[in-house]
Amino acid sequence: MTAFILRRLLQSLGVLIAVALIAFLMFRFVGDPVNQMVGIDTPQAEVARLRQELGLNDPILVQIARFIANAARFEFGISYQFRLPVTQLLAERAPATLELALVSAIFSLAVGIPMGVYTALRRDSALAKAFQAVSLIGVSLPTFLIGILLIYLFAVTLGWLPSFGRGQVVRLGSGWSTGLLTVSGLKALILPSITLGLFQMTLIMRLVRAEMLEVLRTDYIKFARARGLKTRAIHFGHALKNTLVPVITIAGLQLGSIIAFAIITETVFQWPGMGLLFLKAVQSVDIPIMAAYLMMIGFLFVVINLVVDLLYALVDPRLRATIGSA
């Protein structure tokens, strides 16, 4: 087990270094970082001094090492447009994005799994066919269109829910601001999390359906029938459990992409999160923020991958055995 974890950790580290390298290349060569920091009227000597101070004259390998070392300490420099440390900017906006992503993930799993199970078990029922049709539409409609549609319906026409922002937030401790504790905060969460979660929901539904149909065809399900087990026990005891094992992997990875997809939802709903920050950075070529965001998403994916692998091993006894002996 330890060997397995160690090997996975090493792989993850490799991925992170590769991502850091790309981030470094962006930072160093896409636009001159010094030119971004100084004005047109800054004297040449001043520019040279800054260049020396930032270590841009050092050998490239030293620069890479320094960049990675800084990244490991979550230091990504100063944003060109805000003139503030990137880490501080991201940290301020992280709670908004994470809360939104969490609620969307719960929504997509809580709705997607039952819908998938239902469409697999009652394949020919009218409701299952309706779910299938909805899922196809859900995959085909771009996220931003869904957001616009929901805003028009529930905010503009009906006026039930806010169309932008987080509502009232409460500060918890030093840095975390939460919208989960006020009514307006919760109301503000509804539309964005549905928008963000809908695509993942349909994806999970289709995945659960396909996987469940596959499992229902296996010998051990036939054997369970031959043993006279109740249909409920076969479907929900045997088939569902075996279905959910591979679903864990995908669902876990989906959680990662939810955070990245939040860019779109945050734009539609003017949600003050990291995604909106990143988009503004792309629009104004604010490389430090882009590099930091890239590294953060990379880090997140690596962590989620690792957790998913371990979870998988916990659920599947076969894998537990092979990992245990490895």
């Binding site: 991925v15 896409v30 988009l279 070529v285 882009m290």
Partner: peptide, 28 residues
Amino acid sequence: MRIADIQLTFPAILIALLVDGVVHALLK
């Protein structure tokens, strides 16, 4: 294939945004 694996960990839309940002910066 390693590059492919790493890229696959990022959603396509994020890659597209990054490429868009970087290329526009290079084509300043």
